[in-house]
Every structure is written in C-alpha cells, then in structure tokens.
C-alpha cells in the first residue's frame, strides 16, 4: 500500500502538476511537496508527490554498484 513510483514533472500549475510516468500522464497534487519545480523527478504516492528524487544520490548508488560489481570480479 505504501507503493510509490518515480515520475517527472512536465507541467506545473500552482499546487497541481502533470507528471509523466513511463509515458503515461497523470495529474498529481504538490500539497506535500510545495517546493517541487518543473522538470524535477519526484516520488509519487496515491495522487501526491511525496519527495524529490535526489539525482546525485541516484547516480552515486549506480556508481557504487558499478564499483561493487568490478570488485566482485577481482
């Protein structure tokens, strides 16, 4: 039930936003993430944006996995 999925904000109108989730567009509320900006990647849950996805951290995780994978080879 606490399922939340990543989405990108492609339109913003005050406290509402249109997001793109793997090609499908949805209207969601920004009441719980008032600072969200156009172009942000966010986590959405049942019609609300609940957090920004930190792209730096996401890249860091990807990098970490790469290193770990290489480490496993050696």
């Amino acid at each position: 039930m606490c399922l939340a999925v990543p989405a990108k904000i492609i339109e913003k109108d005050n406290m509402m936003a249109t997001v793109d989730v793997e090609g499908i567009q949805r209207q969601i509320s920004l009441m719980l993430l008032p600072d969200a900006q156009l172009g942000d990647f966010i986590l959405m849950h049942a019609g609300f944006a609940i957090q920004k996805i930190d792209e730096e951290e996401a890249n860091y995780t990807a990098q970490l996995l790469k290193e770990v994978a290489q480490d496993g080879e050696g």
Partner: peptide, 16 residues
C-alpha cells in the same frame, strides 16, 4: 535509500 529518504524526512508532510 538516500536517493529519496532524507535524514529529516518530508517536513511539509509531517506538518500536515
């Protein structure tokens, strides 16, 4: 899970 979980969480949601 740092890419979405901040140490302080989501303050706006907590206030709500």
């Amino acid at each position: 899970y740092k890419r979405v979980v901040k140490t302080q969480g989501n303050p706006a949601a907590q206030e709500m």
